[in-house]
Design a binder for these strands. Structure first.
Lengths: 189, 189
DNA sequence: GTCTATAGACAGATAGAC
DNA sequence: GTCTATCTGTCTATAGAC
């Protein structure tokens, strides 16, 4: 084992993890390839041995970040309405807004995605559909209109976190998250 | 009246209107000062006679665009729950998502705002508070928890429109808007 | 695959004529 | 206030050594 610990992960994986972190906090245009490679402890020029463009990396980031974020917010054994409650509670949380928990790209990149190329937008669409299906499935036994509820609930969660992140007032952020949490919970009672 | 019609509005106002249109559709980094000035039929260098920086213009755009957007979505004579219903219906509409109706910066710029300077974020916060207060006030006679409902409803509206704009699938966009519309309406029944 | 170096484009902001 | 011209910095992407 001649290499330092930071090289245990292969380079491509390190670039991807750095990209998740940086894109989620500063958006596509707020991060340069140099920033990402520096964070991954590599040099700028090496980027193109792994990805053909910045947008290709961005598109790859979305599903990986989404899976990581949702996995971190539900326990493996929970299901049904309980799982949805748990997800709402962990999603609409200031620890998520400040990104000390794995950030959901559906919320933190929602506006950012609209201006990018086809591949990025379809990656976003797929991640959204996956999340909506998860919610729909867990609610389908209890509600006939579970698909509508899943869409609306997800929109409220994404909107709540995105607004909370945009706003520069901790009190407002807290009130907003609590309001969405309470109303969201009431939708599945 | 020696000047062409396009000069009826003064330059500053034309710059502001071009900025509303371009920022809403392409975000802060997707638009250059040259783009804005070209759209306003002026030249790049003249910009700084009216605004001291791009971010200052961006901060000024937010309240003006928000007022314009909300005004276009409610009739002057409506009030109470009826007004909220009307607003929900016009907000969660594909004509709003495709920006053929005046776009709401709370939705189209929500992610974009987080990375900017103080003045931009506080402009966003103020516009959000104004919209939330409007909803709260119209619902306060009918609901004891009107503030919570106003926050959650606004988050759902903003999230719904932002996601619909990000996604590259018209069917999904339509389903999402309808779901938010239905669930939003059910919150104020 | 990773590095250094650089090409080539474009941005925000400023200077100074009119 | 508006224009043209330009300064200065940064960006994506590529070339070529190792």
């Amino acid at each position: 084992m001649p290499w330092p610990a930071k090289h245990k992960q292969n380079s491509k994986e390190r670039i991807l993890q750095s990209a998740i972190k940086l894109f989620s906090s500063r958006g596509f245009d707020g991060v340069s390839i140099g920033d990402i490679m520096r964070d991954a402890e590599l040099t700028h020029g090496g980027f193109y041995a792994h990805f053909s463009s910045k947008q290709e990396l961005y598109a790859k980031v979305i599903p990986v970040a989404a899976r990581k974020s949702f996995r971190s917010k539900v326990s493996p054994e929970s299901s049904g309405k309980e799982m949805v409650h748990e997800l709402i509670d962990h999603y609409l949380d200031s620890k998520h807004v400040d990104q000390s928990k794995p950030p959901c790209p559906l919320a933190f990149l929602v506006t950012d995605v609209a201006n990018r190329e086809e591949g990025v937008r379809s990656a976003y669409r797929k991640a959204f559909n996956k999340a909506a299906s998860l919610l729909d499935k867990q609610m389908s036994a209890d509600f006939p209109d579970s698909r509508n509820k899943a869409f609306a609930l997800l929109a409220m969660m994404v909107g709540g976190v995105a607004i909370a992140h945009a706003v520069d007032d901790e009190e407002l952020e807290k009130s907003l998250l609590e309001a969405c949490n309470a109303v969201g919970a009431s939708l599945i009672e």
